[in-house]
Nucleic acid binder design. Structure first.
Length: 816
RNA sequence: GCCGGGAUGGCGGAACUGGUAGACGCGCCGGAUUCAAAAUCCGGUUCUGGUAACAGAGUGCGAGUUCGAUUCUCGCUCCCGGCACCA
């Protein structure tokens, strides 16, 4: 009588076993090999989606594998609980954001439990709880004292109808998403963190992140955007201050034919005061969407300011323009334009009929036609006065020396990275712990008044933040002078919460500091897994925070994440799953139908983790079919009775073949899961082994033992991926200990030995034959055997063999 | 626009360090089982020609390096992620 594979029955049973035995609860055990396995925590939207299932499964597989390697594994879970969707739900359905969020968390926790993830739930962190954000506020006041936070004006998208600040995402084609009114740029005072103080260290630190993908390091490097250049002063006509520009190409100085300033530049503002056309242009610039992508793709426009700068070498007049593509926030807010050697300057010059002067020629004599396109490569200076004939480095130094000597220039290192604006004009976030006093200015909230608790019972209208209508929240006494003062009503960017939650997991109950000495045991994270979309912002802010904690003496780790795995998206019909497109697949429905193991198996099998994964219902069925075959194979095997002890020397050739396959599989799967993280190929190898078992015919009393070894192997190596079925089958195979507590198997090198190998024979690089050859055959023997092959001889014909290439154990290539 | 990544059978993917292209799974085709169907099991399956043996072509497109290129180099096309207030 055979038992049928019934995941509905075994999965809750196995999960109950893990809970009862507290399998995944871990404490700090000094001098043990720890492994901190982490995924980017989810936003509690209420619906677990396939993207979540994918990351969490990848991480769970790694955690279970490391556990079987004997590591002390921590795998926590928590909630990135502040954010806009809660406010949107409140507007739409009238549920307070807090209530909505807590309900979602509870729902999602239940969903996660059914997939069998090995979390230590005692360490759950929820960022919208005062116990958590209290330490964020605490840290902010420390940074305030150290001068690492400051307030300045910054531009936001303003919806004039809803009287609300909009996120970039809420601006669609320049209009508010709900009001449809044209969005305006508005400058308001906001808080910033000085991440730029750490720009160089964040850049240098990338060199040591060997466990990170090159693509992510490269993106961060470019984002930080270090450049070496010179700031130069150009005199301006009339009784005006000199105009400073930053350039990385001082070698093109003699090719400057015009200059451009940002719309917010004081010079532009000054001229606009007397010139209505300029004033209109500046007004027009205010309508540009705040996102950089918009700025870069929009039409480049400008207007002459009607005044000129003086070229510092030739003393010629250079017209000054105001242009919509010059950024006030980068460099000095003004640029010298060299249309001959800069693409954007070239297009702008062509558009407005400005002169183009070539001052660089190619060193290899390539002809350059600057009337066709700009020549932007480095080269040799021409028509350039005292730097004529110099190449880039020499010209750079010559200009720098001369201008520094004259006091009108300085060598400067610039970063593209900007300080982190952390103010949000929203309700559902961590209150910024600052009190504004007429007398004392901006006063940080003292420790004994923390946390500043966000009121959770609010009326939410969607017009502005409800905190602005709550005098009981913002009317306070100044902590310094005691006079009536106003509390800040802005909240933190939610990236602040996600920049340090991983440290909090180490000691989530600590109520005297963000974390305690347990942090030193667990940090840094050994394996961090999350979406590639976080390659820059979240991962850079987290690295920044880690350095702050270090510099405050709270942590000894320089970097938060030792190894990083960035997983691809889950697609359906070639597109990202989203409610808008109506192409979502609900994980819950799939688990109800096939069980958690099937969903886990399909997710890991369908693609390697970094790649986008195309969802396929048929593929899921295939995964389910495999688990059924697997289940049946073990049942059938066990019915054959108890095997005798395996004696390797007594095996016949069929038994040796299966045993070789078993040990090859251990080798391959260990490498695939442990090093390569290619779970798809690990599963494929296990499937091959099961296929071999199915085809295997018993031929001696050792056959059952060899078959047993093969099945034991499949159960153990698949247990990180499909832990429930493997738990059950392991028990069925007669083991006392649960498979989750087993050690990872080690392959037997002797079992891999093969007497004859198949070698490929090519003639002129084309496959012509395969020959069987003894594993220890000499090169000469291999060559002779290859030349002797009938098909090979046919292709050589009467042509002469020029040379023979032999790759030992693999191939022979005969060149004629 | 800029930065990063991707493209391989009908489909998801494999080929790890330049050495057998298509492992494994899905789908499809044929067979077994069944009154029949589902499920299951066995066999086949890149394309073209050939009963077959075998031959020719083939990894987005166009060049190049090499005895040999999915893999390296150069130039394109299309798709995806990020671009600082989505998380």
């Amino acid at each position: 009588m055979k038992k049928i594979y019934n995941p509905k029955k075994i999965e809750p049973k196995v999960q109950d076993f893990w809970n009862r035995t507290k399998t995944f609860e871990v404490d700090e055990v000094p001098d043990t090999d720890k492994f901190y396995c982490l995924t980017m925590f989810p936003y509690p939207s209420g619906q677990l989606h396939m993207g979540h299932v994918r990351v969490f499964t990848i991480s769970d597989v790694i955690a279970r594998y490391q556990r079987m390697q004997g590591k002390h594994v921590l795998q926590p879970m928590g909630w990135d609980a502040f954010g806009m969707p809660a406010e949107n739900a409140a507007i739409k359905r009238g549920i307070p954001p807090a209530k909505w969020t807590y309900q979602n968390i509870s729902d999602m926790r239940n969903q996660l439990d059914r997939i069998g993830y090995g979390y230590d739930w005692r360490r759950e962190v929820t960022t919208c709880r005062p116990e958590y954000y209290r330490w964020e506020q605490w840290l902010f006041t420390r940074l305030f004292d150290k001068g690492l936070v400051y307030r300045k004006n910054a531009i936001v998208n303003w919806d004039p109808v809803d009287q609300t600040v909009l996120a970039n995402e809420q601006v669609i084609d320049g209009r508010g998403w709900r009001s449809d009114a044209p969005v305006e740029r508005r400058e308001i005072p906001q808080w910033f963190m000085k991440i730029t103080d750490y720009a160089q260290e964040l850049l240098d630190g990338l060199e040591n992140l060997d466990g990170w993908p090159d693509s992510v390091k490269s993106m961060q490097r470019n984002w930080i955007g270090r450049s070496e250049g010179i700031e130069l002063a150009f005199d301006v006509e009339g009784d005006r201050d000199p105009l400073w520009v930053y350039t990385t190409r001082p070698d093109t100085l003699m090719g400057v034919t015009y200059m451009a300033v940002a719309a917010e530049h004081p010079l532009a503002v000054e001229i606009a005061a007397q010139n209505p056309d300029i004033s209109n242009f500046l007004q027009e610039c205010k309508k540009i969407h705040a996102a950089e992508a918009m700025l870069e793709t929009m039409e480049k426009k400008g207007m002459p300011l009607g005044i000129s700068a003086i070229h510092p070498i030739t003393s010629e007049k250079i017209p000054l323009w105001v242009a919509n593509f010059v950024l006030m926030g980068y460099g000095t807010g003004a640029v010298m334009a060299v249309p001959a050697h800069d693409e954007r300057d070239w297009l702008f010059a062509k558009k407005y009929g400005l002169p183009i002067t070539q001052v660089i020629e190619a060193t290899d004599g390539t002809r350059i036609d600057i009337s066709e396109e700009a020549y932007v490569s480095y080269g040799r200076s021409v028509n350039s006065d005292f730097i004529d004939g110099m190449e880039f480095d020499e010209a750079f130094e010559a200009i720098a020396d001369r201008f520094e000597h004259e006091g009108r220039g300085r060598r400067t290192i610039n970063y593209r990275l900007r300080d982190w604006g952390i103010s949000r004009q929203r309700y559902w976030g961590t209150p910024i712990p600052i009190i504004y006093c007429d007398k004392c200015g901006s006063v940080p909230v003292p420790d004994d008044q923390l946390p500043v608790v966000l009121p959770e019972k609010v009326e939410f209208t969607g017009v502005g933040s409800p905190l602005k209508d709550m005098p009981e929240f913002y009317e306070v006494a100044c902590p310094q002078c005691g006079n009536p003062a106003n509390r800040e009503t802005d909240t933190f960017d939610t990236f602040v919460e996600s920049s340090w939650y991983f440290s909090r997991y180490a000691s989530p109950d600590c109520d005297t500091a963000p974390f305690d000495e347990r942090e030193a045991y667990w940090m840094p994270v050994d394996q961090y897994t999350g979406g590639i979309e976080h390659a820059i912002l979240h991962l850079l802010y987290s690295r920044f925070y880690q350095k702050i904690f270090r510099d405050l003496g709270l942590s000894s780790a320089d970097e938060p994440f030792k190894n990083l795995l960035t997983q691809g998206m889950v697609l359906k019909d070639g597109a990202k799953m989203s409610k808008n497109k109506g192409n979502t697949v609900d994980p819950q429905g799939m688990i109800d139908r096939y069980g958690a193991d099937t969903v886990r198996l399909f997710m890991m099998f369908a693609a390697p983790p970094e790649q986008a994964l195309e969802w396929s219902d048929a593929g899921v069925q295939g995964a389910f079919r495999f688990l059924n075959r697997f289940w049946k194979a073990v049942q059938l095997h066990v019915e054959k009775g108890r095997p005798t002890d395996l004696v390797a020397d007594m095996l016949n050739s069929a038994e040796k073949d299966l045993r070789r396959k078993t040990h090859q599989t251990i080798f391959k799967v260990s490498d695939d899961i442990g090093r390569r993280y290619t779970f798809n190929t690990a599963i494929a190898a296990s499937m091959e082994l099961l296929n071999a078992v199915t085809r295997f015919r018993h031929s001696s009393d050792q056959s059952l033992s060899v078959e047993r070894e093969a099945l034991n192997t499949i159960v153990v190596v698949l247990s990180p991926i499909v832990p429930h079925i493997c738990h059950e089958l392991w028990e069925l195979l007669g083991h006392d200990r649960a498979v989750v507590d087993e050690a990872w198997p080690i392959f037997d090198e002797k079992a891999l030995w093969q007497e004859t190998l198949e070698i490929v024979v090519q003639v002129n690089g084309k496959l012509r034959s395969r020959i069987a050859i003894a594993a220890d055959a000499s090169k000469e023997d291999v060559e002779a055997e290859a030349l002797n092959d009938e098909n090979v001889r046919r292709f050589i014909g009467d042509r002469k063999v020029k040379k023979t290439i032999i790759v030992p154990g693999r191939l022979v290539n005969i060149v004629v």
